[in-house]
Amino acid sequence: MLQLRDVRVVIDGHEIIRIDELDLAPGSRLGLVGESGSGKTMTAKAIAGLLPDESKVSGSVIFEGQDLLTLNDREMSKVRGKRIGFVFQDPARSLNPMMRIGKQVSEAIRIHSDLKGDAVTAKVIDLLHQVQLPEPETLLRRYPHQLSGGQQQRVMIAAAIAADPDLLIADEPTTALDVTVQEEILRLLISLSEERKMSLMFVSHDLGVIRFVCDRVAVIYGGNIVESGRIEDVVAHPMHRYTAALLAANPGMPKDDNFSAFIGKRLQTITGSVPAVGKFPSGCRFRNRCLSATDACSTMPSPITTGNDHRYLCWNPGDRGQS
């Protein structure tokens, strides 16, 4: 339903995003994972057409047969909210502090449908029920600051799915929340996607969270999708060295979910940090931080696809040597 082909985003002469191929099947949940600065949020924004004005986007973002990159702001506004819903990272800042909850949840309904008056209110109450918020009738008259962070994010989700979109893009939706609230929101997103047969694109820096939510994953580094595939394949057999390093750096990723197994075990880190925009090396963008880099890595590898649509860009693949 969503296909990105040769998508490039250039800002100030720097190529921020270069995605040759990224697919999302109907009803599936795709995780987009990477460190901060890897381009994951930029990718989500490129799909939404919400990139800053000075960015130049090329390639194609085909959504349900239509190339979104050819649409202008007005045409794109008919896609946003109606066919693609969005949930963002910081719910407190993503809600309008001066507008009642009900009005914000009903916004997409009022923009994209002919429903009026009580019918809209009824739908908003139903939506607030669906995101498991208590007392929807009184809640819709309240203001965002009167709610907790978790409740605010549920409101954001209700607002995002109000016009029944086919795809929901969630950009770090739980990062700003408490761990206990996090899991509730993740479960809510999973159940909503299943009940509504709604595809989900889940952007996160946390592979553990993505493994919990998604069936497929795409690992992004330096604006490139370095590896993609079914989540269990990628976690069990990471092919790209960056994926392997991410997995090794994640304490929540033991294969047997046995907490005691990694108590006292030293957590691995990825050497260095994500280079600044325009400071990435040529060829494989990870090679200056990669422990297994060879001379071949100075040219861009071609994608390799193995069984189960497991795709990666690495000259020196495999999980050999990395635990």
Partner: peptide, 25 residues
């Protein structure tokens, strides 16, 4: 502000978001 982006993500045009959410804030 982030909530302006949210409004656009729900289907407001830049102008619509500015008038409905922006002016009040």
């Amino acid at each position: 502000e982030d909530f302006m982006r949210s409004a656009m993500a729900r289907g407001r045009t830049r102008r619509g978001a500015a008038i409905i959410h922006g002016v009040r804030n």
